[in-house]
Design a protein around this nucleic acid. Structure first.
Lengths: 243, 243
DNA sequence: CGTAGGTTTGACTGATCTCAAGTTTGGTGG
DNA sequence: CCACCAAACTTGAGATCAGTCAAACCTACG
């Protein structure tokens, strides 16, 4: 039977099921991974650049991001994460963290020993493939972000970020793209798009003035998804099976 | 005994040996992969976005890049590749290409059936881990590129790109960081850094005027690597074991 | 030696940043 | 339930980095 969404790794399993077909053996194997559950506040660092983590962190609830900084203090968010995302699969095979992972809302995470994930991946070819896909889709998303910050103007850049967030959320069964609440501040949108807070603010108003989005507090409404995708130059192909 | 550099996959094996310890079994397995060798001209497309490749492409000689475009025609190079790089490992598990792969010099490539690579990875845990590391280092490089185009100014951005290219070339045993020939045009540097050709040209002159680099045709000389790294805000940690 | 692609230069424009000052919001304690 | 505070958001004016357009100049190669 299907996994209860309340089971700790329910969301992770549903995510992996969008990537490969899991049998009962795989679901059981994942459900019986040892883990430590933790509740953390917004802004909590789950991983810091330079650390050598021994546990992998899975986001059970809430939102998080990865970010890096320049030596002059510029901060760049390189990805946002939603419940069900495995936040540092890479530390299974790369010892030292090359970026920070930080929550953007209060969140619940599960810490799983990296060695256990490695063992599971080597023991089970289906899970091996699922994790490969997950990691490679991550990679594809980073490439799209390079394009986004490198070649789109502020309006398309912000709209694209919103489209990706909405599409991934929807794919994960966390709501619709029509109306949703943004967990991130305008400062964080700025850090993700390589812009300044001031310009993000003005550009959000422009998107609103043009009728592409409407806002109320941190709630965003995208009445015309087709139009939004056009303004954002958003084509979900780069998200692969994840959407 | 060690692999002759002339053996078709010699460079790939040496690259993977920087990531994990390969035994004779692994080296043999790689050397006996079936492949088709091809010589191609500069600007040749190896993979096009939207395609469903059945073979994986390994760069034996020459230079290549991956790139994506916006609907308005903007082009963004998302990575450069040097001999020994596996150019589309991702098509082993993700069917549809989300970006283009194109040579930037004349090149020799080997086409290996994706199914063979998958079989080998599932059969051999050491190779499995090596490919994992390779893919995750790729991912780390993309993250650094997001930071580079998102938060560094033109001078640091171009200098960083040059540092990465020089460092990876050197790590692969293809020459020193002190003096090397750039295979890419200023147009391609512009497409990789999210700038325009005109501005790349002026910025290269500025780097030269400040004594950070010197140039002659497409040869670049970095007399003071420490200074260059400082200007570029370059810290090779993100390249992991690859350097 | 002719041609195409790559590089260099100049003058002008404009998107985005900076700085600086409000204003609103959401949470906290009285 | 209200007062207060810090953080987030908003707005304006002026500055700047990088873009645009256009032309000239190399230089590799057929």
């Amino acid at each position: 039977m299907s996994i209860s969404p309340d089971a700790p790794f329910g969301r992770v399993i549903r995510k992996l099921e969008r990537l490969v077909q899991l049998g009962p053996a795989e679901r059981d194997a994942i459900q019986s991974l040892p883990f430590k559950r933790t509740d953390v506040l917004p802004g909590h660092y789950l991983v810091r650049e330079g650390q050598v983590p021994v546990d992998c962190c899975i986001l059970l609830n809430g939102y998080a991001c990865r970010h890096k900084t320049t030596s002059s203090g510029g901060r760049q968010i390189v990805s946002f994460h939603i419940p069900g995302d495995i936040l540092d699969l890479q530390h299974v095979v790369l010892p030292r963290a090359d970026h920070n992972v930080q929550t953007i809302s209060s969140a619940t995470v599960a810490w799983v020993p990296a060695a256990e994930i490695k063992r599971l991946a080597l023991a089970n070819p289906v899970i091996n493939e699922a994790l490969w896909r997950d990691a490679l889709i991550d990679s594809s998303i980073f490439r799209e972000w390079v394009l986004n910050v490198g070649r789109r103007d502020a309006k398309a850049r912000i709209a694209h970020m919103l489209c990706e967030f909405a599409a991934r959320r929807q794919a994960a069964g966390l709501g619709s793209t029509e109306r949703f609440e943004l967990p991130m501040s305008q400062q964080q949108i700025a850090d993700a798009t390589g812009l300044t807070t001031v310009h993000v603010n003005r550009t959000l108003f422009e998107l609103e003035r043009e009728g592409v989005i409407s806002r109320d507090k941190r709630h965003v409404e995208i009445a015309n998804w087709r139009l939004m995708c056009q303004v954002a130059d958003f084509d979900p192909a780069y998200l692969h099976a994840a959407v």
